[in-house]
Amino acid sequence: MTGRLSNALIASLLFIGAMLASLLAGAKLLPPSSLLDLLLGDDGEAALILWQLRLPRLALGLVVGAALGAAGATIQAATRNPLGDPGLLGINAGASLAVIIGSGLFALGPTANAWLASGGASLAALAVHAVAGAPRGPSAPIKLTLAGVAVTAFCLGVGQAIALADPERFDVVRNWRVGALSGDGLALLPAIAPPLLAGAMLAAVLAPRLNLLALGEDRAAALGLSVGWTQAGCLLAVVLLAGAAVAAAGPIAFVGLAAPHMARRFGGADQRIVLPSAALIGAVLVTAADTLGRVVAPPAELPVGIVTALIGAPVLVALARAQRSEA
């Protein structure tokens, strides 16, 4: 029990640290000592940066990270796939292609894009499961992951063709391919709230059922769980969450993969605990990666999607090497 407690303590310290760093760091550093003054009211430039940029950006990072973490936790449990991640499963790429089509070709605004991204995410998720042929058994995760990579390649190919049709459009679109939190949080958060909340509620409602599913599909069915409906509901929750995250920040990989693994390591396998803790960890990961991207090469920013991928790729290699063999 003390282990749990100290874990929770470490986690909350990290959380607070990441939040503070995110508020203060950036192309313009705010002095830590002034934070209280700025928060309490001061109408200088620093206060404006804090209120107009850093706080909305922090909120956006937390929300996007939480959505990705929750999506990862839900899909990993629902498909019993330890490699479940909206990025690896093509869901991010589908949403991102929808956004490129929406804003690049039809000049749609953020609200329309949020729903469009969810639509693109659903199509990609369906395609992935269809291509993989709803696999079961121990090698199902690999099949789903490969199908996800193939669907991602398709979406990126088409997106790139749209971008390359016009050199001036390309100059703008080349920046959308990678996830970043530089968007206007104050405008984006209300726009993505409806799909996000719907997805989060659905995931929370289904979490207890996923504990049953963890016993195996046959036993879960014997215990009265409608496996098909539960999985379909979970997939819906995942595309709503991931679609909203992509609409707000573009594709960010590996957070949905790593957060649930860390959550299980800290808090055990109960999905009712894994879901919120994965959301929390996802929020910390995205915020920390975004902060890192802002301080490594000022005054330019390294987009958060690149930071998570550069850190996440070796992590996935390590995970693959450590995983129990599954022929």
Partner: peptide, 19 residues
């Protein structure tokens, strides 16, 4: 899996270079 991970790492590098 390792191939996918290495691919993702290189893709991030490529995106960054193009960016």
């Amino acid at each position: 899996l390792i191939g996918i991970a290495v691919g993702a790492g290189f893709t991030a590098l490529n995106d960054w270079l193009i960016f």
